[in-house]
Design a protein around this nucleic acid. Structure first.
Lengths: 192, 192
DNA sequence: CAACGTACCGGAGGGCCCTCCGCTTAGCAA
DNA sequence: TTGCTAAGCGGAGGGCCCTCCGGTACGTTG
Protein backbone atom coordinates (compact mmCIF):
# COMPACT_ATOMS: atom_id res chain seq x y z
CA UNK A 1 0.00 0.00 0.00
CA UNK A 2 2.69 2.44 1.01
CA UNK A 3 5.89 0.52 0.29
CA UNK A 4 8.17 3.43 1.21
CA UNK A 5 9.62 5.21 -1.75
CA UNK A 6 13.05 4.14 -2.91
CA UNK A 7 14.39 7.35 -4.31
CA UNK A 8 16.25 9.71 -2.01
CA UNK A 9 14.43 12.85 -2.97
CA UNK A 10 11.11 11.11 -2.51
CA UNK A 11 12.08 9.98 0.94
CA UNK A 12 13.33 13.42 1.87
CA UNK A 13 10.11 14.98 0.77
CA UNK A 14 8.12 12.48 2.70
CA UNK A 15 10.02 13.22 5.88
CA UNK A 16 9.82 16.96 5.33
CA UNK A 17 6.07 16.76 4.90
CA UNK A 18 5.68 14.74 8.05
CA UNK A 19 7.83 17.13 10.05
CA UNK A 20 5.96 20.16 8.77
CA UNK A 21 2.62 18.56 9.43
CA UNK A 22 3.65 17.74 12.96
CA UNK A 23 4.56 21.34 13.60
CA UNK A 24 1.47 22.73 11.95
CA UNK A 25 -0.81 20.52 13.94
CA UNK A 26 0.99 21.20 17.16
CA UNK A 27 0.70 24.92 16.50
CA UNK A 28 -3.00 24.82 15.76
CA UNK A 29 -4.06 22.22 18.29
CA UNK A 30 -4.23 24.66 21.16
CA UNK A 31 -7.51 26.01 19.89
CA UNK A 32 -10.97 24.58 19.38
CA UNK A 33 -12.38 21.14 19.81
CA UNK A 34 -9.53 19.27 18.25
CA UNK A 35 -11.20 18.02 15.13
CA UNK A 36 -8.73 17.68 12.32
CA UNK A 37 -10.28 20.20 10.00
CA UNK A 38 -8.15 23.01 11.30
CA UNK A 39 -5.05 22.45 9.23
CA UNK A 40 -4.83 23.13 5.54
CA UNK A 41 -3.00 20.58 3.46
CA UNK A 42 -2.21 23.28 0.96
CA UNK A 43 -0.47 25.21 3.69
CA UNK A 44 1.49 22.20 4.83
CA UNK A 45 2.67 21.53 1.31
CA UNK A 46 3.75 25.11 0.80
CA UNK A 47 5.50 25.27 4.14
CA UNK A 48 7.27 22.02 3.43
CA UNK A 49 8.42 23.39 0.10
CA UNK A 50 6.76 20.75 -2.02
CA UNK A 51 3.98 20.90 -4.54
CA UNK A 52 0.53 19.96 -3.42
CA UNK A 53 0.65 17.06 -5.82
CA UNK A 54 3.64 15.64 -4.02
CA UNK A 55 1.87 15.76 -0.72
CA UNK A 56 -1.08 13.94 -2.14
CA UNK A 57 1.06 11.31 -3.76
CA UNK A 58 2.68 10.46 -0.47
CA UNK A 59 -0.49 10.67 1.58
CA UNK A 60 -3.57 10.16 -0.53
CA UNK A 61 -5.91 11.41 2.15
CA UNK A 62 -5.67 13.70 5.11
CA UNK A 63 -6.24 10.72 7.34
CA UNK A 64 -3.34 8.85 5.83
CA UNK A 65 -1.08 11.71 6.83
CA UNK A 66 -2.42 12.08 10.35
CA UNK A 67 -2.29 8.36 10.74
CA UNK A 68 1.36 8.25 9.86
CA UNK A 69 2.08 11.03 12.33
CA UNK A 70 0.56 9.13 15.18
CA UNK A 71 1.47 5.63 14.26
CA UNK A 72 3.74 5.52 17.25
CA UNK A 73 1.18 6.70 19.73
CA UNK A 74 -1.39 4.34 18.39
CA UNK A 75 0.97 1.46 18.82
CA UNK A 76 1.50 2.52 22.39
CA UNK A 77 -2.20 2.38 23.10
CA UNK A 78 -2.47 -1.01 21.52
CA UNK A 79 0.38 -2.32 23.60
CA UNK A 80 -1.26 -1.09 26.78
CA UNK A 81 -4.08 -3.58 26.51
CA UNK A 82 -2.12 -6.71 27.46
CA UNK A 83 -0.21 -4.79 30.12
CA UNK A 84 -3.40 -3.69 31.80
CA UNK A 85 -4.73 -7.20 31.55
CA UNK A 86 -1.70 -8.55 33.35
CA UNK A 87 -2.18 -6.16 36.23
CA UNK A 88 -5.93 -6.11 36.65
CA UNK A 89 -9.00 -8.26 36.33
CA UNK A 90 -10.48 -8.03 32.84
CA UNK A 91 -13.32 -5.70 33.71
CA UNK A 92 -11.01 -3.21 35.33
CA UNK A 93 -8.48 -3.54 32.55
CA UNK A 94 -11.15 -2.87 29.99
CA UNK A 95 -12.37 0.20 31.75
CA UNK A 96 -8.86 1.53 32.27
CA UNK A 97 -8.01 0.97 28.68
CA UNK A 98 -11.12 2.80 27.60
CA UNK A 99 -10.12 5.67 29.79
CA UNK A 100 -6.66 5.79 28.35
CA UNK A 101 -7.91 5.67 24.83
CA UNK A 102 -10.48 8.35 25.48
CA UNK A 103 -8.08 10.58 27.30
CA UNK A 104 -5.29 10.10 24.88
CA UNK A 105 -7.57 10.64 21.96
CA UNK A 106 -8.70 13.95 23.25
CA UNK A 107 -5.22 15.05 24.05
CA UNK A 108 -3.46 14.10 20.89
CA UNK A 109 -6.36 14.48 18.66
CA UNK A 110 -4.66 12.65 15.87
CA UNK A 111 -5.45 9.33 17.41
CA UNK A 112 -9.07 10.26 17.48
CA UNK A 113 -8.87 11.24 13.87
CA UNK A 114 -7.43 7.91 12.95
CA UNK A 115 -10.03 5.95 14.77
CA UNK A 116 -12.62 8.18 13.28
CA UNK A 117 -11.30 7.40 9.85
CA UNK A 118 -11.12 3.73 10.66
CA UNK A 119 -14.69 3.60 11.82
CA UNK A 120 -15.76 5.40 8.69
CA UNK A 121 -15.39 2.07 7.05
CA UNK A 122 -13.32 3.25 4.14
CA UNK A 123 -10.03 3.06 5.95
CA UNK A 124 -7.44 0.43 5.26
CA UNK A 125 -7.97 -2.44 7.60
CA UNK A 126 -4.25 -2.80 7.84
CA UNK A 127 -4.13 0.18 10.14
CA UNK A 128 -6.93 -0.34 12.50
CA UNK A 129 -6.98 -4.10 12.63
CA UNK A 130 -4.47 -4.08 15.52
CA UNK A 131 -6.75 -1.74 17.38
CA UNK A 132 -9.64 -4.11 16.94
CA UNK A 133 -7.40 -6.96 17.98
CA UNK A 134 -6.51 -5.14 21.20
CA UNK A 135 -10.17 -4.74 22.02
CA UNK A 136 -10.76 -8.35 21.22
CA UNK A 137 -8.13 -9.47 23.68
CA UNK A 138 -9.80 -7.48 26.43
CA UNK A 139 -13.23 -8.79 25.55
CA UNK A 140 -12.06 -12.38 25.38
CA UNK A 141 -10.42 -12.12 28.76
CA UNK A 142 -13.61 -10.77 30.24
CA UNK A 143 -15.65 -13.46 28.60
CA UNK A 144 -13.29 -16.11 29.94
CA UNK A 145 -13.69 -15.06 33.55
CA UNK A 146 -17.40 -14.51 33.15
CA UNK A 147 -17.47 -10.79 33.76
CA UNK A 148 -18.29 -9.87 30.17
CA UNK A 149 -20.65 -11.25 27.60
CA UNK A 150 -19.08 -13.61 25.17
CA UNK A 151 -19.20 -13.29 21.44
CA UNK A 152 -19.12 -9.54 21.25
CA UNK A 153 -17.80 -8.13 18.00
CA UNK A 154 -14.84 -5.90 18.84
CA UNK A 155 -15.65 -3.66 15.91
CA UNK A 156 -18.98 -2.91 17.48
CA UNK A 157 -17.16 -1.74 20.55
CA UNK A 158 -14.74 0.36 18.56
CA UNK A 159 -17.71 2.04 16.95
CA UNK A 160 -19.20 2.77 20.31
CA UNK A 161 -15.94 4.27 21.44
CA UNK A 162 -15.84 6.51 18.41
CA UNK A 163 -18.52 8.62 20.00
CA UNK A 164 -15.95 9.96 22.40
CA UNK A 165 -14.14 11.93 19.77
CA UNK A 166 -17.18 14.01 19.12
CA UNK A 167 -17.35 15.38 22.61
CA UNK A 168 -16.41 18.95 23.14
CA UNK A 169 -13.86 18.92 25.96
CA UNK A 170 -14.55 22.57 26.59
CA UNK A 171 -18.11 21.98 27.69
CA UNK A 172 -18.58 19.03 29.96
CA UNK A 173 -16.91 16.62 27.59
CA UNK A 174 -14.67 15.20 30.24
CA UNK A 175 -17.46 14.24 32.59
CA UNK A 176 -19.65 13.10 29.73
CA UNK A 177 -16.96 10.80 28.47
CA UNK A 178 -16.81 9.14 31.86
CA UNK A 179 -20.54 8.64 31.99
CA UNK A 180 -20.72 7.23 28.51
CA UNK A 181 -17.86 4.87 29.15
CA UNK A 182 -19.72 3.61 32.19
CA UNK A 183 -22.78 2.98 30.08
CA UNK A 184 -20.76 1.17 27.45
CA UNK A 185 -19.04 -1.04 29.98
CA UNK A 186 -22.34 -1.86 31.60
CA UNK A 187 -23.66 -2.85 28.22
CA UNK A 188 -20.78 -5.25 27.77
CA UNK A 189 -21.17 -6.90 31.17
CA UNK A 190 -22.40 -10.43 31.34
CA UNK A 191 -26.07 -10.59 32.26
CA UNK A 192 -26.42 -12.99 35.14
CA UNK B 1 -33.58 32.35 14.93
CA UNK B 2 -35.37 31.87 11.65
CA UNK B 3 -38.48 33.99 12.02
CA UNK B 4 -39.78 33.27 8.53
CA UNK B 5 -39.22 36.09 6.09
CA UNK B 6 -42.03 38.56 5.62
CA UNK B 7 -41.51 39.59 2.05
CA UNK B 8 -43.16 37.62 -0.69
CA UNK B 9 -40.12 37.18 -2.86
CA UNK B 10 -38.11 36.01 0.08
CA UNK B 11 -40.70 33.46 0.97
CA UNK B 12 -40.95 32.27 -2.62
CA UNK B 13 -37.23 31.83 -2.84
CA UNK B 14 -37.20 29.93 0.39
CA UNK B 15 -39.81 27.53 -0.85
CA UNK B 16 -38.14 27.13 -4.19
CA UNK B 17 -34.86 26.30 -2.54
CA UNK B 18 -36.51 23.73 -0.33
CA UNK B 19 -38.31 22.11 -3.23
CA UNK B 20 -35.17 21.96 -5.32
CA UNK B 21 -33.15 20.57 -2.46
CA UNK B 22 -35.73 17.89 -1.88
CA UNK B 23 -35.52 16.80 -5.51
CA UNK B 24 -31.77 16.94 -5.62
CA UNK B 25 -31.40 14.85 -2.53
CA UNK B 26 -34.00 12.37 -3.65
CA UNK B 27 -32.21 12.04 -6.96
CA UNK B 28 -28.82 11.43 -5.42
CA UNK B 29 -29.85 9.37 -2.43
CA UNK B 30 -30.03 6.15 -4.36
CA UNK B 31 -26.30 5.83 -4.30
CA UNK B 32 -23.68 5.38 -1.62
CA UNK B 33 -23.88 5.30 2.11
CA UNK B 34 -26.29 8.16 2.52
CA UNK B 35 -24.02 10.72 4.07
CA UNK B 36 -25.10 14.20 3.14
CA UNK B 37 -21.96 15.22 1.34
CA UNK B 38 -23.29 14.15 -2.00
CA UNK B 39 -25.26 17.23 -2.91
CA UNK B 40 -23.70 20.52 -3.89
CA UNK B 41 -25.30 23.62 -2.44
CA UNK B 42 -24.02 25.57 -5.39
CA UNK B 43 -25.93 23.25 -7.67
CA UNK B 44 -29.11 23.56 -5.65
CA UNK B 45 -28.92 27.33 -5.75
CA UNK B 46 -28.36 27.37 -9.48
CA UNK B 47 -31.13 24.89 -10.11
CA UNK B 48 -33.47 26.87 -7.93
CA UNK B 49 -32.63 30.00 -9.84
CA UNK B 50 -31.29 31.96 -6.91
CA UNK B 51 -27.85 33.25 -6.08
CA UNK B 52 -25.71 31.25 -3.77
CA UNK B 53 -25.86 34.13 -1.32
CA UNK B 54 -29.61 33.83 -1.12
CA UNK B 55 -29.41 30.19 -0.30
CA UNK B 56 -26.95 30.86 2.47
CA UNK B 57 -29.04 33.66 3.89
CA UNK B 58 -32.02 31.39 4.23
CA UNK B 59 -30.08 28.40 5.46
CA UNK B 60 -26.81 29.38 7.02
CA UNK B 61 -25.47 25.85 7.00
CA UNK B 62 -26.08 22.73 5.03
CA UNK B 63 -27.53 21.16 8.13
CA UNK B 64 -30.03 23.97 8.54
CA UNK B 65 -31.34 23.20 5.09
CA UNK B 66 -31.51 19.46 5.54
CA UNK B 67 -33.06 19.97 8.90
CA UNK B 68 -35.83 22.07 7.47
CA UNK B 69 -36.46 19.45 4.81
CA UNK B 70 -37.01 16.76 7.36
CA UNK B 71 -38.61 18.76 10.11
CA UNK B 72 -41.80 16.86 9.52
CA UNK B 73 -40.26 13.45 9.68
CA UNK B 74 -38.34 14.35 12.78
CA UNK B 75 -41.48 15.49 14.48
CA UNK B 76 -43.06 12.18 13.60
CA UNK B 77 -40.27 10.29 15.31
CA UNK B 78 -40.54 12.47 18.36
CA UNK B 79 -44.25 11.89 18.57
CA UNK B 80 -43.77 8.16 18.42
CA UNK B 81 -42.11 8.03 21.81
CA UNK B 82 -45.23 8.61 23.92
CA UNK B 83 -47.29 6.40 21.64
CA UNK B 84 -44.91 3.52 22.12
CA UNK B 85 -44.86 4.14 25.82
CA UNK B 86 -48.64 3.90 25.96
CA UNK B 87 -48.60 0.51 24.25
CA UNK B 88 -45.57 -1.16 25.78
CA UNK B 89 -43.60 -1.39 28.96
CA UNK B 90 -40.82 1.20 29.03
CA UNK B 91 -37.99 -1.13 28.19
CA UNK B 92 -39.77 -2.41 25.14
CA UNK B 93 -40.88 1.04 24.14
CA UNK B 94 -37.32 2.29 24.39
CA UNK B 95 -35.96 -0.48 22.26
CA UNK B 96 -38.70 -0.09 19.68
CA UNK B 97 -38.14 3.61 19.50
CA UNK B 98 -34.42 3.07 19.01
CA UNK B 99 -35.21 0.71 16.20
CA UNK B 100 -37.50 3.17 14.54
CA UNK B 101 -35.02 5.97 14.82
CA UNK B 102 -32.21 3.84 13.51
CA UNK B 103 -34.22 2.45 10.68
CA UNK B 104 -35.72 5.74 9.71
CA UNK B 105 -32.43 7.46 9.94
CA UNK B 106 -30.82 5.11 7.54
CA UNK B 107 -33.70 5.26 5.13
CA UNK B 108 -34.25 8.97 4.94
CA UNK B 109 -30.76 9.94 5.60
CA UNK B 110 -31.69 13.50 6.35
CA UNK B 111 -32.82 12.59 9.80
CA UNK B 112 -29.48 11.05 10.46
CA UNK B 113 -27.81 14.16 9.19
CA UNK B 114 -29.81 16.30 11.55
CA UNK B 115 -29.04 14.22 14.55
CA UNK B 116 -25.46 14.11 13.48
CA UNK B 117 -25.44 17.88 13.34
CA UNK B 118 -27.19 18.12 16.65
CA UNK B 119 -24.68 15.88 18.34
CA UNK B 120 -21.88 17.91 16.88
CA UNK B 121 -22.66 20.34 19.61
CA UNK B 122 -22.79 23.40 17.46
CA UNK B 123 -26.38 22.96 16.42
CA UNK B 124 -29.15 25.15 17.68
CA UNK B 125 -30.63 23.55 20.70
CA UNK B 126 -34.01 24.71 19.54
CA UNK B 127 -34.04 21.95 16.99
CA UNK B 128 -32.82 18.96 18.81
CA UNK B 129 -34.12 19.74 22.24
CA UNK B 130 -37.43 17.97 21.42
CA UNK B 131 -35.44 14.95 20.42
CA UNK B 132 -33.65 14.93 23.72
CA UNK B 133 -36.97 15.45 25.47
CA UNK B 134 -38.41 12.39 23.74
CA UNK B 135 -35.52 10.31 24.95
CA UNK B 136 -35.91 11.72 28.41
CA UNK B 137 -39.55 10.67 28.56
CA UNK B 138 -38.58 7.12 27.70
CA UNK B 139 -35.77 7.07 30.22
CA UNK B 140 -37.92 8.51 32.98
CA UNK B 141 -40.62 5.94 32.38
CA UNK B 142 -38.06 3.18 32.60
CA UNK B 143 -36.59 4.64 35.74
CA UNK B 144 -40.05 4.87 37.28
CA UNK B 145 -40.81 1.20 36.82
CA UNK B 146 -37.33 0.17 37.81
CA UNK B 147 -36.26 -1.33 34.50
CA UNK B 148 -33.77 1.41 33.70
CA UNK B 149 -31.19 3.28 35.70
CA UNK B 150 -32.33 6.60 36.97
CA UNK B 151 -30.59 9.87 36.40
CA UNK B 152 -29.28 9.15 32.94
CA UNK B 153 -28.58 12.18 30.82
CA UNK B 154 -30.64 11.88 27.65
CA UNK B 155 -27.99 13.70 25.68
CA UNK B 156 -25.56 10.95 26.53
CA UNK B 157 -27.98 8.51 25.00
CA UNK B 158 -28.48 10.62 21.90
CA UNK B 159 -24.75 10.64 21.47
CA UNK B 160 -24.61 6.90 21.72
CA UNK B 161 -27.32 6.63 19.12
CA UNK B 162 -25.40 8.86 16.77
CA UNK B 163 -23.06 5.98 16.12
CA UNK B 164 -25.77 4.36 14.06
CA UNK B 165 -25.52 6.87 11.28
CA UNK B 166 -21.97 5.92 10.60
CA UNK B 167 -22.81 2.35 9.74
CA UNK B 168 -22.60 1.33 6.16
CA UNK B 169 -25.92 -0.33 5.39
CA UNK B 170 -24.34 -2.05 2.42
CA UNK B 171 -22.00 -4.14 4.52
CA UNK B 172 -23.53 -5.62 7.62
CA UNK B 173 -24.80 -2.31 8.89
CA UNK B 174 -28.28 -3.59 9.48
CA UNK B 175 -27.21 -6.43 11.72
CA UNK B 176 -24.58 -4.34 13.39
CA UNK B 177 -27.12 -1.69 14.26
CA UNK B 178 -29.21 -4.29 16.01
CA UNK B 179 -26.28 -5.57 18.01
CA UNK B 180 -25.18 -2.14 19.04
CA UNK B 181 -28.67 -1.15 20.07
CA UNK B 182 -28.77 -4.22 22.26
CA UNK B 183 -25.54 -3.19 23.90
CA UNK B 184 -26.78 0.33 24.46
CA UNK B 185 -30.03 -0.84 25.99
CA UNK B 186 -28.20 -3.25 28.25
CA UNK B 187 -26.05 -0.38 29.39
CA UNK B 188 -29.11 1.60 30.33
CA UNK B 189 -30.74 -1.21 32.27
CA UNK B 190 -30.97 -0.93 36.02
CA UNK B 191 -28.31 -2.97 37.75
CA UNK B 192 -30.06 -5.15 40.31
C1' DC C 1 31.16 8.84 -17.84
C1' DA C 2 27.21 9.20 -20.63
C1' DA C 3 22.71 8.16 -21.69
C1' DC C 4 18.27 6.60 -20.63
C1' DG C 5 13.92 5.08 -18.63
C1' DT C 6 11.05 5.72 -15.08
C1' DA C 7 9.84 7.27 -10.47
C1' DC C 8 8.77 11.38 -8.89
C1' DC C 9 7.80 16.44 -8.95
C1' DG C 10 4.81 20.48 -9.07
C1' DG C 11 1.27 23.42 -10.05
C1' DA C 12 -2.56 24.60 -13.12
C1' DG C 13 -7.38 23.66 -13.18
C1' DG C 14 -12.08 22.59 -11.98
C1' DG C 15 -15.18 22.28 -8.26
C1' DC C 16 -17.09 23.37 -3.81
C1' DC C 17 -17.67 26.21 0.38
C1' DC C 18 -18.84 30.38 2.47
C1' DT C 19 -18.53 35.67 3.05
C1' DC C 20 -19.22 40.18 1.96
C1' DC C 21 -21.19 44.13 0.04
C1' DG C 22 -23.18 47.11 -3.69
C1' DC C 23 -27.64 46.89 -6.00
C1' DT C 24 -32.77 45.89 -6.37
C1' DT C 25 -37.38 45.90 -5.13
C1' DA C 26 -41.41 44.89 -2.13
C1' DG C 27 -44.46 46.92 0.77
C1' DC C 28 -45.67 50.82 3.50
C1' DA C 29 -46.94 55.64 4.16
C1' DA C 30 -48.39 59.99 2.67
C1' DT D 1 -49.78 57.17 -7.00
C1' DT D 2 -45.43 58.21 -5.73
C1' DG D 3 -41.63 58.04 -2.90
C1' DC D 4 -38.73 55.86 0.46
C1' DT D 5 -36.21 52.54 3.05
C1' DA D 6 -34.63 48.49 4.70
C1' DA D 7 -35.20 43.57 3.67
C1' DG D 8 -33.57 40.88 0.46
C1' DC D 9 -30.76 39.59 -3.76
C1' DG D 10 -26.84 37.66 -6.16
C1' DG D 11 -22.42 36.83 -7.59
C1' DA D 12 -17.51 38.02 -7.31
C1' DG D 13 -13.80 36.60 -4.48
C1' DG D 14 -10.69 34.10 -1.52
C1' DG D 15 -9.69 29.67 0.22
C1' DC D 16 -9.47 24.74 0.25
C1' DC D 17 -9.71 20.10 -1.85
C1' DC D 18 -8.11 16.89 -5.04
C1' DT D 19 -6.77 15.31 -9.96
C1' DC D 20 -4.10 15.12 -13.83
C1' DC D 21 -0.29 15.32 -16.72
C1' DG D 22 3.87 17.58 -18.91
C1' DG D 23 8.33 18.04 -17.21
C1' DT D 24 12.60 16.83 -14.21
C1' DA D 25 16.26 14.37 -12.24
C1' DC D 26 17.66 9.99 -9.84
C1' DG D 27 20.07 5.92 -10.19
C1' DT D 28 21.24 2.41 -13.04
C1' DT D 29 23.40 0.21 -16.90
C1' DG D 30 26.73 -0.14 -20.52
Amino acid sequence: MNPKPTRRDALDNRERILATAREAIAASSGASNGVSSGVSLTAIAKQAGVGIGTLYRHFPTREALILELYRHDIQHLIDRAPVLLADHPPLVALRRWFDEVAHYGRLKYGVAEVIHAATDGGADDEYFAPFVAAIDVLLKAGAADGSLKSGIDPEDVLLQLSVLWRLDPARGGEARAGRILDLIVDGLRATP
